[in-house]
Amino acid sequence: MKNYTEQSVMGWGNRGWVEIIETILEVCESGALKTHIMYKCNLNSKQISQYLQFLENHKLIESMTDDPFSKRAIFRTTPDLGRKYMEAYKRLAAIFKH
């Protein structure tokens, strides 16, 4: 049985969740704050929170703070699974463009 986050992530809007995830991973490649990701991906606060939780749970992104006293998390695409997802997405997108 899927958890609530997975069900919510897969059922949103006109863009496919696969495309939204790839966009989030691109934005997070060099590290990004939640609000930056939210605006770049054109998502609302609830949506971005669910996507970030989903991606962290599946080890596609990781969060860290640059200051131990700060509550502001920086999200980064993981070098293993996150980048593999991006590469696979780009290969599939290229196939469907032909």
Rank of each mutant, 00 (worst) to 15 (best):
H98M: 10
C41S: 13
R76I: 06
T77I: 02
K34I: 05
F54I: 08
D80C: 12
K84L: 12
L92W: 03
I74N: 04
L92I: 06
Q53L: 14
W12V: 13
K84H: 08
P79R: 04
T77E: 01
N57S: 15
F54Y: 15
G13D: 11
E87I: 12
L81T: 03
Y4K: 13
W12P: 05
T65N: 05
Q53H: 12
S8C: 11
G11Q: 07
D80V: 12
R15T: 11
R91D: 13
V9D: 00
G13K: 11
I61N: 04
M64T: 13
N44T: 02
I37S: 04
S30I: 04
M10N: 08
H36T: 12
Y4A: 14
E26A: 11
K2T: 06
E6K: 02
A93H: 06
I24W: 02
V9M: 03
F69M: 14
I21P: 00
G31R: 05
Q53S: 13
I20M: 07
F96I: 11
S63P: 03
G13P: 02
V18G: 01
R72V: 11
Q50E: 14
R15L: 15
I21N: 01
I95H: 10
P68Y: 06
T5C: 14
Y85M: 03
E26W: 14
K71T: 07
Y39H: 14
L25S: 06
L25Y: 05
I21G: 00
G11L: 09
G13M: 08
F96T: 08
I48W: 00
E29V: 04
R91K: 15
R76C: 12
T77A: 03
K84N: 11
I61K: 03
T23G: 01
Q53Y: 12
T23S: 09
K40G: 00
H98N: 14
S70Q: 08
K46G: 10
T78L: 00
K34M: 07
Y4I: 13
K40Q: 07
C28G: 03
W12E: 07
I21S: 07
G16T: 09
V18D: 08
N14S: 15
G16C: 07
Y85G: 01
G31P: 06
C28N: 02
L43Y: 03
M38A: 00
V9P: 01
